[in-house]
Computed example of a mutant assay.
Amino acid sequence: MEDMRTARDRPAGLERGSAQEAIRVLMAMGFMEIRADSHLVKRALAAGETDTALRHLEHMRMIADVCHNLPQDLFPRRRKIRERKAIESLRFHLRELDPDDRAAQWVVGQLDAQGFDYVRVLRDRIKWKHAR
């Protein structure tokens, strides 16, 4: 699905497909998934399904691990520095993580769902490409 947002709908200073915008998407989706999973944990525990609750907690932990350093990428005042830091974070998550790693697959899934061309942004710097 193509992103139909206009420039007016995007945060100030961000271009479509910028690494900064990708970082913002990862943080937003991460927060929403953690919130949703917390309800699933509560429901599983109430039903006595400890294994299910633990699987949801592990998923929440994985997302938190992916997202915990992302907010600092958006702190520098200069746009070019913010973009460079955001690119470095994306490179780490797409290059340094094993392609079979759930965290890397989560990052790829979130970026794909929002229509980000992360391969273009990271071009020759990634060790693997998401199989389509």
Results as ranks from 00 to 15, higher is better:
85 K>Q: 05
93 H>Y: 08
68 H>S: 11
64 A>F: 13
31 F>G: 12
24 R>G: 12
105 Q>F: 00
14 L>P: 07
98 D>P: 10
128 W>M: 05
110 Q>A: 13
32 M>G: 11
25 V>D: 08
118 Y>L: 03
55 R>G: 02
97 L>H: 07
108 V>Y: 08
15 E>P: 04
29 M>A: 09
89 S>F: 05
131 A>K: 12
5 R>C: 01
13 G>M: 06
96 E>D: 15
16 R>L: 09
51 D>G: 10
115 G>K: 07
15 E>D: 15
40 L>E: 11
121 V>L: 15
121 V>M: 14
101 D>Q: 10
50 T>I: 12
1 M>D: 03
108 V>H: 02
103 A>N: 00
105 Q>C: 06
64 A>R: 10
25 V>E: 15
29 M>I: 13
111 L>Y: 05
115 G>D: 09
117 D>R: 00
120 R>F: 14
23 I>W: 02
10 R>L: 15
121 V>C: 13
19 A>E: 07
33 E>R: 09
34 I>M: 14
8 R>Y: 09
113 A>C: 05
69 N>A: 13
62 M>Q: 13
102 R>M: 06
33 E>C: 08
60 M>C: 08
119 V>F: 14
116 F>D: 01
104 A>P: 00
79 R>M: 05
31 F>H: 10
82 R>I: 08
56 H>T: 02
91 R>A: 09
41 V>C: 06
70 L>E: 01
98 D>N: 00
26 L>F: 09
106 W>L: 06
88 E>V: 13
124 D>W: 04
102 R>P: 03
11 P>E: 08
88 E>R: 12
113 A>Y: 04
72 Q>L: 12
122 L>C: 03
35 R>G: 10
77 R>Q: 10
61 R>M: 09
20 Q>S: 09
114 Q>F: 14
15 E>V: 10
30 G>R: 02
61 R>N: 07
66 V>N: 00
120 R>H: 05
26 L>M: 03
111 L>T: 00
120 R>Y: 12
55 R>L: 06
37 D>N: 09
28 A>D: 10
56 H>I: 02
48 G>Y: 04
35 R>T: 15
41 V>T: 07
66 V>P: 05
68 H>I: 09
8 R>Q: 10
120 R>I: 03
80 K>D: 14
105 Q>G: 01
49 E>R: 02
15 E>Q: 11
25 V>P: 02
52 T>A: 14
72 Q>V: 15
124 D>P: 01
64 A>K: 01
89 S>M: 07
34 I>D: 04
53 A>V: 01
27 M>S: 01
15 E>C: 04
77 R>V: 15
29 M>H: 07
56 H>E: 08
30 G>Q: 09
131 A>N: 14
103 A>Q: 14
7 A>T: 06
58 E>I: 00
14 L>R: 11
132 R>P: 12
42 K>L: 13
7 A>D: 07
113 A>G: 11
